[in-house]
Structures are given as C-alpha cells and as structure tokens.
C-alpha cells in the first residue's frame, strides 16, 4: 500500500462532531513524503487543527485511514510482515511524530530540563547521562543553554515555544507537526521561532505546519495545502498557490491575508 518515500498517507479522512452536524474534516486525502515541508493554510474553522491533530490521533477520526510507514494507525490492530495480527500501540507511533502547540503546553511544574527529559527517560528508558547531554546540545542550538533549570513561567513566549520544539525533538521524531506555533506570540518573538523552524526544514525534517505566516509558507514550504469547510480545496507549490491560485475560495482567502 505504502511506498517508502511516503511517510504518511491520509485517505478519505473524516471527522464529524455533533452526530455529523459539524464536518470538521470532510474527506481529506493527501500523501506526506519524507522531507516535505507541508504548510496548511485556510480560514478559521476550516479544519486545519483537526487535520493536524488527527495525524497523531489526538482526535479520533470518524472514518478514513492514516497510514504511517504503511500501517493504518486508525485501526486497533494490524497484520505484520510475518502474517500475525498485532495490537496497534498508538503511543509507539506518537513518539515518532513530534507536536508543537499554539499555547506551548510546557509542563509548568517541571524545569526546562525536566520537560525535555521526561519522555526520553520514561518512554525510551534512555540513561540519564546521555539524554542530558543531548538536551544541552539541543538547547544550545536554539540559544537557550542557560535556561535548562528555569521553570516555564520564567520564560518569554518565544523562549517557551523554542523549548517546546526541542522537547519534541528529544524523541527523534520522523515528522514534526506544528499547529499555529507563532499565533500566541508577541510580534517581536515570531521571528526567533520561525528561524528555528526554518533551520529544521533545512536539515531535512519532515514537517506539517499550520500557520497564518504567509511569508514563511512561501519561503520554507515546498507544498501548500488550502483547506476550507473541512475539505482540501487546492494543493500545490508555493508559487502555484500564491502566484496562480485557481479556486475562488483560495483567491478570496489570499486577498484577505496578503
């Protein structure tokens, strides 16, 4: 079903709320290839967050399939290469998909260091020494090496979001999911977070980014998805989407945000 350069295949994904009265996702089909920087844009309420949160099953889809490395993670079991039926352990797949939230969601009762080492230690059982070394290297990369022992409350918004990004990176994810990572930031802090994301993209990280930062989408994205009313209305390269938009909804949207 899946070929090796397709990391995630989404097929006819639907998510309904209120017994079908709200169709947050109305049949989304898309392939995410390794190394893609896929930027999802669209008006408020179009289902962008729901789409992103479905990818790691924070939202349970109503129907459809999501193949991650060829395995449908929306089912509760799968047949492995030896022909045996195995129960699907969703925690195992979530480890491989890092997620960054609009409101950071750092753990307030833990220091930066503890925030970052929690999952590697408890889930991966990495030795403390090794993981702390890695954490310090990651913190240095985002310019926060002197904040290891700070509590989230002592950080600015931009610093919090950079910590949230490296916290996810600690688990060596295969893909990073960003849900409006700069929307809750003061304007002067947006740049520092986007810079970290740009560098990640340059290093070849597969990324799915929901954002209203059209500059970032154009500069860093290699594929742009335009969503409205739970549907994927248009998909293309940044130049195709921004220079030659086809769908009237997209033209209308761009005229408002650009």
């Amino acid at each position: 079903m899946a070929t090796s350069d397709n990391l995630i295949q989404v097929q006819r994904l639907k998510k309904h709320y209120g017994q079908g009265s709200v169709k947050a996702l109305d049949g989304i089909t898309v392939d995410i290839r390794r190394g893609d920087v896929m930027v999802v844009i669209g008006p408020s309420g179009s289902g962008k967050s729901t789409f992103l949160r479905s990818l790691n099953l924070l939202e349970e889809p109503t129907s459809g399939a999501i193949f991650f490395n060829g395995i449908d993670i929306t089912k509760h079991s799968y047949v492995n290469s030896a022909g045996k039926t195995v129960t699907l352990d969703i925690d195992h797949y979530r480890q491989r998909m890092g997620m960054v939230f609009q409101h950071f969601n750092l753990f307030p009762h833990m220091t930066v260091l503890q925030n970052m080492t929690l999952a590697p230690r408890k889930v991966r059982h990495f030795p403390k020494r090794a993981i702390e070394q890695k954490v310090r290297a990651l913190l240095e990369r985002v310019g926060l090496q002197n904040k290891a022992n700070a509590y989230p409350i002592q950080l600015s918004g931009g610093q919090k979001q950079r910590v949230a990004i490296v916290r996810a990176l600690c688990m060596d994810p295969e893909v990073m999911l960003f849900d409006e990572p700069t929307s809750a930031l003061d304007p002067e802090m947006v740049g520092e977070v986007l810079d970290v994301m740009k560098e990640l993209a340059r290093e070849g990280m597969t990324m799915v980014v929901v954002t209203h930062e059209m500059g970032f989408a154009r500069e860093v994205g290699n594929r742009i998805l335009f969503m409205a009313d739970g549907k994927l209305l248009e998909e293309g390269s940044p130049s195709a989407i921004f220079e030659h938009p086809q769908h009237p909804r997209l033209r209308d949207f761009l005229s408002k945000v650009l």
């Binding site: 195992h92 979530r94 890092g98 997620m99 969601n105 753990f107």
Partner: peptide, 23 residues
C-alpha cells in the same frame, strides 16, 4: 488541569498512566 497538558504528554508518547502520574 488544562487539556493541553495531557495532549502534550500523549503526543510525546507517554501512555495514559504515565501522563497521569508525571504530568
């Protein structure tokens, strides 16, 4: 406790009881 806390923990791969215990 904010739902975002659980979501962040689960998205890191912690299971339900680890999320409860540590977060």
């Amino acid at each position: 406790v904010d739902r975002g806390q659980t979501e962040a923990a689960r998205s890191l791969g912690l299971n339900r009881s680890q999320t409860f215990r540590y977060v």
